[in-house]
């Protein structure tokens, strides 16, 4: 399966929610998805296009645009193409559907994104802190406007 087929297939299937598709190289493609449809798109990717491996899920804080981007890197065990799927969320109320139903290993990635950025996932089975101490929940240390680095983080660790 090559990059162009994949892009054509998802843009035809979800013409309303997929936008800004880009073929960066033979093995890297990217697309933006509107945040309510992310679970549907992931399910289609997994079941019809062979993207059976969620490689990574992360958040980028674009403070100048006042937005978060939730970035899914979805790969496959059979073909070498990695799809970078991005969903834009408002910075003041970042809520998105959890994709744990589709990709089982998204569970910890989403917990990590929740505690570090405050992105809230609906339908997540267990949205609690993973690597941070409980008392740091609510400080969202990886946001760009976090002021406790490095003094506060170091103090909390001691």
């Amino acid at each position: 399966m090559d990059a162009k087929t994949i892009i054509d297939s998802i843009s035809n299937e979800f013409s309303d929610s997929i936008s800004n598709t880009l073929i960066e190289s033979e093995i890297r493609v990217s697309a933006y998805v509107s945040s309510p449809d992310v679970v549907e798109v992931c399910r289609y990717l997994k079941e019809s296009l062979g993207f059976d491996h969620l490689s990574c899920e992360s958040v980028v804080d674009y403070i100048k645009r006042d937005e978060f981007e939730v970035v899914y890197h979805i790969a496959s065990y059979d073909h070498p193409v990695v799809l970078t799927l991005k969903a834009i969320l408002p910075r003041d109320n970042p809520v998105i559907d959890s994709i744990v139903d589709v990709y089982w290993n998204a569970n910890w990635y989403e917990r990590e994104n929740y505690e570090l950025y405050g992105v809230s996932y609906t339908n997540h089975p267990y949205l609690k802190v993973l690597v941070l101490p409980e008392e740091m929940l609510g400080e969202w240390p990886l946001r760009k406007d976090y002021e406790g680095f490095p003094q506060k983080t170091a103090k909390n660790l001691v």
């Binding site: 993973l130 690597v131 680095f149 983080t153």
Partner: peptide, 15 residues
């Protein structure tokens, strides 16, 4: 349970 050796490397790298 994780987090006993969390170093915040992603944040450090940004700085």
């Amino acid at each position: 349970e994780l987090g006993f050796i969390h170093k915040g490397i992603e944040k450090i790298l940004e700085n």
